[in-house]
Design a protein around this nucleic acid. Structure first.
Length: 685
RNA sequence: GGUCCGGUAGCUCAGUCGGUUAGAGCAGGGGACUCAUAAUCCCUUGGUCGGGGGUUCGAGUCCCUCCCGGACUACCA
């Protein structure tokens, strides 16, 4: 087979957060594929970068009192270290804030301009005079211009389903300040994606570049109607690259992020003498993007559209994977299942997770569950019990004498494993790693009985059997080596150790075709420890928020803040503008008791609550806390509610207030409780 | 509610074009071994292939329908 040239990417991690096990899933998936391709002898370049731009970076830098550049540099160093320790083998890891990226943005922009895809639209945008900023759609609510339903979001009506702009709302309010926004004319630049409709439909529906369910999704959600113009500029203040022919405005972060793949490639070329056009403008080069399903449409509509317009190669394939869940649930900070890469590394070997992910990954978009008990059992049984055991039970018998000079008769075991190589390779190639792992483990299941039947431990008792002992161990170690070669993309450390043990480095897939003979065998060293349950538990405990993990009732008299809470929550949702005391008193917060609570089967997030304010005064409230609370456990407890909120008609009934809770949503919602002594009906001042 | 994907042993899954008696690993039960990280090996229990209907000589596989689960989307704000 002729050598292929492949450019491979993982999605760019956002600079504002640390690497977690969900992103590790993506990079492990990519890295396995890259290592596989290199092992097969293909020319393969793996690039990535930090995604740095956007409002969130700007706000966080302000809060931390330093420049964006400093923030980015720190986070990038942390990202690189985390990923390196998971054996992710990037050829280059850059940053979307690097000068190379700005140059590519400019040239890409130039092409898109020339193609006549850019138009300026005088957007009637709402401006919050209190905060002094333009309001994105989601920061405005008001009355639907079509059906007059109150309190509707700024982009479409939840009652009648009509879509409109925020400026069309009849009685708009800023959700930041509550002020009535002014309509101001703001100029934005848009890319008319609709001009590329036909191309995108052909490309996405060709059956070659996308998984079938993704092609289907695009057809159903986007391609069935005209594609909307893509708002590509953001007015200052914004952290990003300023648009050269449109001063005071910046490219939206999703414009420059994928271009980061190119900038990173350029950096690699500059460092190694490579030629950029060989990678991005050559029909001989395949381009493979690995991404999560959350960013599907950026990579399957906007990005191919940009590449096409600017005359670059189109992605050969966009490989899309699902999210990571832990023990069957969305990762949750409060449960300790939102685990940072570094926290994992503090307790466990990266090889465990690489193998487990490989054993579960296929070429579909399904979510992948990290069931912790399964994780422990699978790694210990498969890797330690079956694979590494082959070496550890035989290597010491040939430590002095090495492998036999000729490969002995083994009943066809080696040939069988050699022949299976193509099938395993096919599974890797198509990203069906779980199949590859099954096939490889099947080899270990044949090799262990061989050792059992030939009893090297008995052979060694009689010096007359020395030659036979050497032959048996030569066979077992060769079978082990084949497995190590086939697992090398997943377990580079095991491949390295195997090379050292048998004095022949593993560098090529084809090494599994020829038995190794006559080499010395090094003293056997442990290759992989068993996972201990306590280490997994320690990792989960370390991932829990400090206030949950520490014992209650400790002294709080110390003058210094010893809790050292993370800045993440504040950065995710910055402080609202100042309000007056009068503003505050408009909101009537009351202690209330939950007297009834039931889940609404048709709604995914809603519980229906009956709240008592005492004295027979009740309120019916719908609260989006289904994922976090069992209805039965709420009954009887005290909560804080907004008692004078305008009632809202919902599909399931009238909601007459709101239960106060914090947290980002989903399973991470935390309902507030008053301290002991509070009674229903009391106002919260 | 809409769209899509799935449901095979206690668990995780394989099952090709419709073709013999539906498989594997783990877990469970019994035995063996003692080289190996309490690892390994042999034997073994366990299934109305979600339910019902249809097509067919023949259905886990194809069609219809219902039930259940998940994802996306909407609602939640």
């Amino acid at each position: 087979m002729p050598k292929r040239r492949l450019l491979v990417t993982s999605a760019l991690p956002y600079v504002n957060g640390h690497i977690h096990l969900g992103y590790i899933l993506e990079t492990v998936q990519t890295d396995i594929w890259v290592r596989f391709q290199k092992l097969r002898g293909n020319e393969c370049l793996y690039v990535c970068a930090d995604d740095t731009h956007g409002t969130a970076t700007m706000i966080r830098a302000q809060q931390e009192g330093r420049s964006e550049a400093e923030l980015i540099a720190d986070m990038q160093a942390a990202h690189v270290a985390d990923l390196k320790d998971f054996d992710i083998s990037f050829d280059n890891f850059g940053s979307t804030n690097d000068p190379e990226n700005e140059r590519f943005c400019q040239s890409m922009w130039h092409s898109i301009r020339e193609a006549g895809l850019v138009k300026e639209k005088n957007v009637e945008q709402l401006f919050d005079p209190v905060v002094g900023t333009f309001l994105a759609d989601r920061f405005v609510r008001g009355t639907c211009p079509k059906c007059n339903s109150a309190d509707q979001p700024g982009d479409n009506c939840s009652k009648c389903g009509s879509t409109y702009g925020p400026a069309d709302l009849l009685d708009p309010k800023s959700t930041l300040s509550g002020a009535t926004p002014e309509v101001r004319s703001a100029k934005h630049l848009f890319i008319e994606l609709e001009q590329l409709h036909e191309f995108l439909e052909t490309w996405s529906q060709s059956g070659k570049h996308l998984q079938p369910e993704i092609a289907n999704y695009l057809q159903g959600h986007f391609l069935g109607e005209p594609l909307r113009d893509w708002d590509i500029s953001r007015p200052a203040p914004y952290f990003g690259f300023e648009i050269p022919d449109y001063p005071g405005n910046y490219w939206y972060v999703w414009f420059d992020a994928p271009i980061g793949y190119m900038a990173s490639t350029q950096q690699w070329c500059d460092r190694t003498g490579g030629n950029f056009d060989d990678w991005w403008k050559s029909s001989d080069t395949e381009i493979h993007h690995f991404i999560g399903k959350d960013i599907t449409y950026f990579h399957t509509l906007f990005w191919p559209g940009m590449l096409k317009t600017a005359g670059y190669s189109l992605p050969t394939k966009v490989h899309i994977h699902g999210f990571l869940t832990v023990d069957g649930e969305k990762m949750s900070k409060s449960k300790g299942t939102f685990v940072n890469a570094r926290t994992y590394l503090n307790h466990l070997d990266p090889s465990y997770l690489r193998y487990f992910y490989a054993a579960k990954l296929n070429d579909r978009v399904d979510d992948l569950d990290l069931a912790l008990d399964e994780f422990i059992a699978k790694v210990n049984t498969d890797l330690v019990g079956k694979v590494v055991n082959l070496a550890s039970r035989t290597a010491k018998f040939v430590e002095q004498i090495g492998l036999s000079k000729e490969y002995p008769e083994d009943g066809g075991l080696f040939v069988h494993a050699a022949q299976l190589g193509d099938e395993i390779a096919e599974a890797y190639e198509s990203c069906d790693y779980s199949r590859a792992m099954r096939l490889v483990l099947g080899l270990a299941d044949r090799a262990n009985p061989f050792v059992e039947e030939n009893k090297p431990w008995e052979l060694r008792k009689d010096p007359g059997n020395a030659a036979r002992l050497q032959d048996v161990c030569t066979i077992a170690l060769n079978l082990f080596r084949q497995i190590a070669i086939y697992l090398a993309p997943v377990l580079p450390r095991l491949a390295q150790q195997t090379g050292e043990l048998l004095n022949d480095p593993i560098t090529s897939w084809d090494q599994a075709q020829t038995p190794l003979v006559g080499t010395p065998v090094a003293k056997f060293k442990h290759m992989l420890k068993r996972i201990e349950e306590k280490d997994v538990h320690a990792m989960i405990e370390e991932s829990k928020p400090a206030e949950v993990a520490s014992a209650p009732g400790e002294s709080i008299t110390e003058s210094v803040d010893r809790w050292n809470d993370s800045a993440d929550a504040l950065a995710a949702e910055p402080l609202a503008p100042e309000c007056t005391f009068d503003d505050f008193t408009k909101v009537d917060l009351r202690v209330a008791r939950v007297v009834e609570a039931e889940a609404i089967p048709e709604a995914k997030k809603l519980l229906k609550l009956k709240l008592s304010l005492g004295g027979g005064e009740y309120r019916q409230v719908f609260a989006g806390i289904k994922a976090a609370y069992e209805p039965e456990k709420l009954v009887g407890r005290l909560v804080v509610m907004v008692a004078n909120l305008a009632p809202r008609q919902m599909s399931f009934g009238l909601s007459e207030g709101m239960v106060i809770a914090s947290g980002p949503g989903g399973p991470d919602v935390f309902v507030l409780s008053p301290d002991d002594g509070a009674v229903p009906g009391q106002r919260v001042h």
